[in-house]
């Protein structure tokens, strides 16, 4: 089963190496890992999608906790959450077929962010299913280049993944 972990880490040099290295040396499978700053200056947040049964997940979580730089780990898989990915796709787009591509872009509420003489760059955000669907739809036009971010995710409503977990919004 795939699990989504929201992990808060101290923003120290090497923290990504520590986390990524732990996964590879203990033989855990990472589907995706994203990392970026948070509302606090010295804290970064990783969203890690990891494949494994409950036993594996228990070990992953415990081993991650042993890293001094890891502050908090939240397995949000079974909770209500919002998750998003962003993709940039460069498609071959001769002027004659651009109309067709524009329609697809419209349907997925994606955006054109660059127009070249023979190419378009399309930007799309959404959950994994939507991103996969837009990629499938654009394949026939010839995808020249593709980059996606991996998942970021956040709990809905009154639940938080933050240092002061109990903090309620007013």
């Amino acid at each position: 089963m795939r699990h989504i972990l929201a992990v808060l880490v101290e923003n120290n040099p090497g923290v990504l190496t520590r986390v990524a290295g732990l996964f590879s040396r203990r033989g855990y499978n990472i589907d995706s890992l994203t990392v970026g700053r948070t509302e606090s200056l010295n804290i970064s947040r990783m969203t890690i999608v990891v494949e494994g049964d409950d036993l594996v997940l228990e070990q992953v979580t415990k081993q991650l906790h042993k890293l001094i730089d890891v502050i908090k780990i939240n397995d949000i898989t079974s909770e209500q959450y919002v998750d998003r990915e962003l993709v940039l796709i460069k498609v071959g787009a001769d002027p004659v077929i651009r109309g067709e591509i524009l329609q697809i872009v419209d349907i997925f509420r994606a955006r054109i962010v660059d127009i070249g003489r023979r190419t378009l760059i399309i930007e799309c955000t959404g959950d994994e299913g939507k991103i996969n669907a837009v990629i499938e739809s654009l394949k026939p036009f010839g995808i020249k280049e593709l980059v996606r971010t991996g998942k970021v995710a956040m709990l809905r409503g009154q639940k938080f993944t933050s240092i002061s977990e109990t903090k309620e919004d007013e």
């Binding site: 040099p13 090497g14 190496t17 520590r18 290295g21 040396r25 042993k66 001094i68």
Partner: peptide, 14 residues
């Protein structure tokens, strides 16, 4: 050496 010893230290500092 900090890179090399990540898997065999409890923590390390450069």
């Amino acid at each position: 050496i900090t890179g090399i010893t990540i898997p065999i230290t409890k923590h390390n500092y450069l």
